[in-house]
Nucleic acid binder design. Structure first.
Length: 493
DNA sequence: CGGTCTTGGTGTACACCAAGACCGGTGCGGTACT
């Protein structure tokens, strides 16, 4: 049992903060009392501090299950910068000998990051079984629910793995989860009694807007107009890599903004570079697919525009939640053309196998058919004791749930009542009218006053002027040379 | 699903149109290939 004084003392001495953010102390208090905890906290440094502080206070090994290698690397770097040398990520990017070295010295580490796939491997798991784990963290825990069933099934093994690790104290952390998703996470991790710490999800500083279009051309024109006039930086989300590329090109041609595309087809180097440039305000706008987001902690994003309809409200909320982290007025605009929901429907059903596919692959005894995701998925379930009819029933249910989720998303588009209240209700956090911001959503203000909201780009703020590639580096150099030659001081600029 | 592109047949020599194919996101790890 750790006292509240001890927690505050470490917060001050080690982290140099005077106070906890909402939910952090509650989560730490629950963990200190030995309670497994599900923490739903708004994004930011909030969640990492919880397990970091727990590791520092208890001096025990913290094992963090994380969905992305890039996320693990970011965290390890952040810890290393803070002087914590006993942090590492165990990933496929390591050589065989590096991996072995870490596995043989597990007890010397304080923070270890690992993917569910890595942790599912026998040698890795048995290595962890030989050490005592002070805290098991499932970071981005909603992935259990959203990715587990049909995309990254190893997420479904975490409950069993947790038992095999000796039922260590567990923290499940995520930024967005409905009661349904929270129940699902707890059920799949076999921790139905876990303490829930849930902070409100509403973001009052984000104006919510939906616009409808009859043709794609009209939508494109509006996107160009919005990107040209809105205060940057901003993100535009697409459901297609091709469209993200196309529009990045079009926006570059038609606006003064610096725009780049971001999706899974980029080579890792470019992908990293684009992200870095955006983080450092060298890019104004990112045209992204859902690949862009997790682990992005940029506080001055002014707009998030959706060119396509996301397949559920959670995804939408998570994506627009990347706007206005600094608390300043921001805007989320969904550009809808009737029929767009079919892409969403296709995508949310695409990874769910049909009965005939399940039947077909169940006859096969070949484990890995290269590149055939569905074959691998069904093989995974078969290996873990599912019968054909059970699997068909499970996927039928899944399909039904995905369809319902899309219907709720469409409800957000269609509602002529307050969009914010629709979201609040969706997350079971409905509040009174007095809790709505003055400028709330397009149901009240179909033509939002972007100027009044302070969201118009001024000339000085505009992309080209802010672009270090052009003005600060290239132009600055040219002007400096000219003025030096003319005998002026650079101050004259 | 539905828009867009490709293919193939028609009837008559280069264009036209209908039927059919294709597209549409997220990542881990390790193994089998070039």
């Amino acid at each position: 049992m750790i006292s509240t004084e001890q927690l505050y003392q470490t917060l001050k001495q080690h982290f140099r903060f005077t106070d906890f953010r909402a939910g952090q102390l509650d989560a730490l208090t629950a963990l200190s009392a030995g309670q497994n905890t599900l923490a739903v906290l708004p994004t930011g440094a909030g969640k990492t501090l919880i397990y970091e502080l727990y590791g520092v206070v208890t001096q025990k090994l913290v094992l963090i299950v994380s969905p992305l290698i890039s996320l693990m690397q970011d965290q390890v770097t952040a810890l290393t910068v803070k002087g914590e040398k006993r942090a590492a990520a165990l990933t496929s990017l390591m050589t065989y000998s590096e991996k072995n070295w870490v596995l043989r010295h597990l007890s010397e580490y304080r923070f270890l990051f690992v993917s569910p796939e890595m942790l599912s491997q026998d040698q890795i798991l048995s290595a962890f079984q030989r050490v005592q784990i002070g805290l098991l963290v499932v970071d981005e825990a909603h992935c259990i629910s959203t990715w587990g069933p049909d995309f990254r099934p190893e997420y479904l093994l975490l409950g069993q793995i947790r038992h095999q690790l000796g039922d260590p104290l567990t923290l499940m952390a995520t930024a967005t989860a409905t009661q349904h998703v929270r129940d699902d996470i707890k059920q799949k991790l076999q921790l139905p009694q876990a303490t829930e710490i849930v902070e409100p999800v509403d973001r009052q500083n984000i104006f919510l807007s939906v616009e409808r279009f009859d043709t794609q051309n009209d939508k494109n024109d509006r996107l160009i107009e919005l990107v040209a006039k809105l205060k940057k930086p901003g993100v535009v989300y697409f459901s297609s890599k091709k469209k993200a590329n196309e529009m990045a090109e079009l926006l570059t041609a038609k606006t003064n903004s610096k725009v780049a595309a971001y999706h899974a087809d980029l080579d890792p180097e470019t992908r990293f570079k684009v992200q870095q440039q955006f983080m450092q305000d060298q890019l104004d706008v990112i045209c992204a697919t859902s690949a862009f987001g997790m682990g992005i902690d940029k506080n001055n994003v002014r707009f998030v525009i959706h060119y396509h309809v996301p397949s559920d409200v959670e995804s939408y909320w998570q994506e627009i939640g990347r706007a206005g982290r600094d608390g300043e007025q921001s805007v989320a605009i969904l550009l809808y053309q009737s029929g767009d929901e079919q892409i969403a429907q296709f995508l949310s059903e695409a990874t769910i196998p049909q009965d005939n596919e399940i039947h077909y692959y169940f006859q096969q005894n070949a484990p890995q058919i290269a590149g055939d995701e569905k074959a691998n998925l069904i093989w995974f379930y078969k290996q873990h004791g599912y019968r054909e009819d059970q699997l068909q029933a499970a996927f039928a249910k899944r399909r039904e749930q995905r369809l319902l989720a899309l219907r709720k998303m469409m409800g957000y588009l269609r509602t002529t009542a307050c969009k914010r209240r629709y979201i609040q209700a969706y997350f079971d956090q409905l509040k009174g009218d007095d809790h709505l911001p003055k400028h709330c959503c397009s149901s009240d203000e179909p033509q939002p006053d972007f100027k009044g909201l302070g969201l118009l780009a001024s000339t000085a703020d505009s992309a080209a002027a802010n672009d270090p590639q052009n003005s600060n580096t290239e132009w600055q150099a040219i002007l400096t040379r000219l003025f030096n030659f003319a005998g002026h001081q650079s101050g004259a600029l």
